[in-house]
Simulated scan of single mutants.
Amino acid sequence: MSESRGSGLRIVHTHGERITVSEVSTGVELLAYVYRPEDAWESPKPYVHPLRTLAGDIVTDYRPNDHRWHKGLQMTASHLSGQNLWGGNTYVHGQGYLELPERVGSMVHAGFDEVAAEAGGAVIAERLTWHPYDGELWADEQRRVEVRDVDPGAGSWALTWSSAVTNRREEPLRFGSPTTAGREMAGYTGLFWRGPRGFRGGRVIGPDSEGPGLMGRSAPWLAYTAEHDGRDGHATLVFEHAPENDHAGARGTHPAHWFVRSEPFAAVAPSLAFFDELELAPGDTLTRRYRVIVAEGARDRQDIVKYLAEHPW
């Protein structure tokens, strides 16, 4: 085990298992980044859980009974060239979700380049490899998870997540989703957040509208606000594309669309391939960067817009 401190944050690395980041003045553990391998059926991969507000409230779920492979905040690939790096059953058009263990792959921790508290926050820089069921190397990933803008007075802090995935096959990698495979409005793939059971029925807010109609829409950000079980109060999570993500495909790149549910559970994903497959050529790198703002209270659109203006990328 190793420990470092800086900028009001404390990092504890339990080698081979997890890294935790805590805010020193409150003693609250803001996140645990877990990278030890877990059940093969659940498509082993590193994940963030628990994720907490500065008040100490947990805003992620772990292995819920409806989807055991939902684990906090994690990078996923539900349909990847015929393989499932999401976990659990695989959607097959005309047959529904089938138990196909020979399609369930993994994202494997390969090493850390940096784990440190630094000016303004903390950083976890990791190398990973992506594999189908048979263990062949399909991709390398350079991942960077950062803690930034920790403000106990305002009750908010921000996590940034960047992933650069390089295709190591001799043929294209095809990123898809259940929707590209034939299921309507189930475009989940890429960075995926599963909220606590108490967040069911929460409020979904976008830049110019709100509600379940934001499913499948493109927008620079999307927010989810809900009330806690067990104690009074709310929390708001804002999921934001970095400017270079080109979420709308305005520069000719692949557009992103939001996968979001408040029923039967809380979930948000800035989908990599909602309606159409994304093809990554051999040797090419797919890079995406996101910010997740974790705030106490029920923030409205005006609050969110103000925060984003005051905290540019």
Rank of each mutant, 00 (worst) to 15 (best):
S2C: 09
S4L: 10
R5V: 08
R10A: 13
R10F: 11
V12L: 14
E17I: 12
I19T: 07
V21S: 08
S22T: 15
V24L: 14
Y35E: 13
R36Q: 15
P37H: 09
E38C: 09
D39K: 11
P44Y: 07
P44V: 13
K45F: 12
P46I: 13
H49D: 09
P50Y: 11
R52T: 14
D57L: 10
I58C: 11
D61V: 15
Y62K: 08
Y62H: 12
R63D: 07
P64S: 10
N65I: 11
D66W: 15
D66R: 14
H67G: 08
R68M: 14
H70A: 12
Q74S: 14
T76I: 15
T76Q: 09
A77S: 09
S78W: 10
S78E: 15
G82N: 10
N84D: 12
L85G: 12
L85S: 14
G88P: 07
V92W: 05
V92E: 09
Q95N: 02
G96Y: 11
Y97F: 15
Y97P: 09
L98A: 14
E99H: 09
L100K: 12
E102I: 06
E102T: 10
V104E: 04
V108Y: 02
G111I: 06
F112Q: 06
F112P: 07
D113N: 13
D113M: 11
D113Q: 10
E114N: 07
A116D: 08
E118Q: 11
E118C: 04
A119Y: 03
G120R: 00
G121T: 01
I124C: 00
A125M: 02
E126Q: 11
R127T: 02
W130V: 07
Y133I: 02
G135L: 04
L137I: 08
D140S: 06
R143Q: 07
R144P: 03
D151R: 11
P152I: 09
G153A: 15
S156I: 14
W157K: 08
W161P: 04
W161L: 13
W161H: 10
S162H: 06
A164R: 13
V165F: 05
T166K: 12
T166N: 09
A181S: 11
R183I: 01
M185C: 02
L191K: 05
F192I: 01
R194V: 04
G195M: 04
F199N: 00
G201H: 01
G202R: 00
G202A: 02
R203C: 01
R203F: 01
G206R: 00
G206C: 03
P207G: 04
P207L: 01
D208Q: 03
S209H: 00
S218R: 05
L222H: 00
T225L: 02
H228E: 06
G230W: 11
G230I: 06
E240A: 13
P243K: 05
A248E: 10
G252D: 03
P255H: 03
A256E: 10
H257W: 04
H257D: 00
W258Q: 00
F259A: 01
R261V: 01
E263K: 10
P264I: 05
F265R: 05
A266F: 00
A273E: 07
F275G: 01
E277K: 05
E279K: 05
G283V: 12
G283R: 04
L286G: 10
T287D: 12
R288S: 13
V292Q: 14
I293M: 15
R301Y: 15
R301P: 04
Q302T: 15
Y307K: 11
E310T: 14
P312V: 14
W313M: 05
